[in-house]
């Protein structure tokens, strides 16, 4: 999203509040906080125009640690509050900070409607596949069989994939990033800010206390390059330590191939088009288990709710005979009592 820009040069310190950060040591939430504080000075937005709105959860403590405007609200309801802030003042850069439970369990209804409407704001979902704040119950993204405080014998409820849910709700911007990749995360925050419309960023966030290591298979230093593909618009879908693996379409499925084997060349590899309206391929990428797709998967510029509303308002204003409430109150069927 784009707002009034500033001449003033900020550093990350300008966005750090005086509040003591209370997350567990080693929690990925620190990485997200730092990345945001580093990204904000690059966005060119005035500090007073930035607003963080959160629900409830470990992740939702976020606004207290920023020195911008912010509100820590109630569980699951940040999308409503953030939408109200943005509709009241479209000049603001509005950020929803939320957890997997906050956004998709109690707030699931608001989540899908937010994405459907396409208001120009951003949502960062801290997905740790667990309820952190309430000390370790399964969440809507916990895996089947996962043992948690509320599923001691294993979780029996199949999970959502946030990306699939989001695209199903017609998200125009969806990005995924791992909690141990601050550099790309910061850039994605900047891109989300620039994007006009609702941007959703899913961060695979390790909770060291209640679900430690749940993303190790894809985030471990040793394996991450082989297990993740970092997508960039206009670039071929290549990954792997040796940059020799790529994605091709085989019938109706994405398939991993090795460049140089079986006659596969770089030209055969799919080129990522995040900006296309058709989301078929984006959906396939979101669903892909190996490699895990990260980066900006979809970034389709669509008309925003505000643009539609503004156009209507301008039209109604131009054609209306009512400029003041007196014009309305004294119009039409009035009569005089003498």
């Amino acid at each position: 999203m784009e707002t009034t820009t500033t001449e003033k040069k900020y550093t990350f310190k300008d966005f750090t509040s005086d509040q003591e950060v209370r997350w567990c040591p080693g929690c990925d939430d620190y990485v997200i906080l730092r990345s945001m504080q580093k990204a904000l000075p690059e966005m060119g937005v005035k500090k007073e125009d930035v607003v963080f709105i959160s629900g409830i959860g470990c992740s939702s403590r976020f606004p207290y640690y920023m020195s911008t405007y912010g509100m820590h609200t109630i569980h699951g309801r940040a999308p409503g509050i953030a939408s109200g802030v943005k509709m009241a003042n479209p000049n603001l850069s509005v950020w929803i900070m939320t957890g997997d439970g906050d956004s998709m369990a109690i707030g699931g209804n608001h989540f899908i409607h937010l994405l459907r409407r396409n208001i120009d704001l951003n949502m960062v979902m801290f997905n740790n596949e667990i309820y952190g704040l309430t000390k370790g119950q399964f969440s809507p993204t916990s895996l089947i069989g996962q043992k948690t405080k509320s599923s001691p014998y294993g979780n029996t409820q199949p999970p959502f994939s946030p990306g699939e849910l989001a695209l199903g709700a017609n998200a125009r911007f969806f990005a995924r990033i791992t909690g141990n990749n601050p550099k790309d995360m910061a850039q994605i925050f900047i891109d989300a800010h620039k994007f006009k419309g609702t941007s959703l960023i899913e961060v695979l966030q390790n909770c060291v206390i209640f679900n430690d290591g749940c993303f190790d298979e894809v985030t471990d230093k040793e394996v991450k390059e082989d297990m993740q593909i970092f997508l960039e618009h206009g670039k071929p879908m290549i990954f792997g330590k040796n940059k020799d693996k790529g994605l091709v379409l085989n019938k109706l499925k994405l398939e991993v191939v090795t460049i140089g084997e079986n006659g596969v060349t770089q030209e055969d590899i799919l080129v990522h088009n995040a900006k296309e309206e058709d989301k078929t391929l984006h959906q396939m990428l979101v669903r892909l288990e190996y490699p895990l797709a990260t980066g900006i998967i979809r970034s389709f510029a669509d008309v925003t709710l505000e643009e539609r509303e503004d156009a209507l308002t301008a039209e109604v204003k131009a054609n209306s005979k009512f400029k003041k409430t007196d014009d309305l109150f004294f119009s039409g069927e009035t009569y005089e009592v003498k």
Partner: peptide
Amino acid sequence: FQAEDEIAGVTSAIGAAFA
């Protein structure tokens, strides 16, 4: 703003009040 439910109705209003 016609919201998706009453909760979103009131929360959007709270956001607007904040702003």
